[in-house]
Nucleic acid binder design. Structure first.
Lengths: 149, 149
DNA sequence: TATTGTTATACTCTATAACTATA
DNA sequence: TATAGTTATAGAGTATAACAATA
């Protein structure tokens, strides 16, 4: 009988908040990816939909900044969302270089529905949280994020 | 004046624990990566060092499982660590197919020192935590991780 | 000059398949 | 037959550089 995974000593990695954040994020992300895939999009595409839903008319570059990615990556992403008839590029009114992004009515329904599905899948993790812990975690994570942004 | 990042409505993404975990993990990871880079290794190589330090004699496949990656990725990683004279492959005593991994004395010193540097950098984030919150966060994250493993 | 969208490109990380030598 | 290490390869995600159109 060789040493199996349960016997591994993680004492060094276990002292690091960053390592546990990473492992927990991967756990959530697997769930999230599966939910998105069922609906025919990727996590990245959902992020774009979620931003444009509540911020209609943003340019591609503005959305790229909002989700912390490069504007060059937006081109193929918006192409896909247009092909899915969830989003559309409209000519910007005052700047002929840029597009204003809007969800189609179907895109709005799709995004709301997917959001609810993701929330439902996330609730799976709440069985290991005590009352109030989810809110406290959200609050603590936001303070960490705000520290570097 | 166009809409800047501070004006973006993140209300949908902000309801998702997974999204905040991801953003917070990225914040920690940038710090972690910089600390590793200063010492000439990558975050992935540090993970391997940290496991082998406390679990000397593991095979490559066992280490791969411990850090949740594929054994094929271990080959180049261990090659690099051997070239840095931090780790060595020794023939396994009872199985000529496999190697037993050990840190060199220099590898042990290096790993302890890097661990301390990472911890020191992580303390930067503790300025936004209240007393006891770090421990509570570590505990909560572990419960989430254990749920899926 | 600077910025937007675009294209081409590269780099990292990760995963898969197939091979060999051993078990 | 199954497993350990290895190699080649492919995919996703992300970043950089350069270009045309426009500001």
């Amino acid at each position: 009988m060789t040493q199996n995974q349960n016997d591994i000593d993680y004492s060094m990695l276990n002292t690091l908040v960053g390592y546990r954040l990473r492992r927990a994020q991967i756990a959530y992300f697997e769930n999230f990816t599966a939910t998105c895939t069922e609906q025919g999009v990727t996590p990245g595409l959902f992020g774009i939909l979620a931003i444009v839903l509540n911020n209609p008319g943003l340019t591609q570059t503005a959305v790229a900044q909002a989700i912390h990615t490069d504007r060059s990556a937006m081109v193929a992403a918006v192409d896909k969302l247009e092909k899915l008839k969830l989003m559309e590029r409209r000519p910007s009114e005052n700047d002929r270089r840029s597009y204003a992004l809007y969800l189609t009515p179907e895109g709005e329904r799709f995004t709301h529905a997917l959001h609810q599905k993701v929330l439902a899948h996330e609730s799976h993790f709440e069985q290991v949280m005590k009352p109030g812990e989810k809110e406290q975690m959200l609050d603590m994570l936001m303070r960490i994020i705000d520290l570097v942004n």
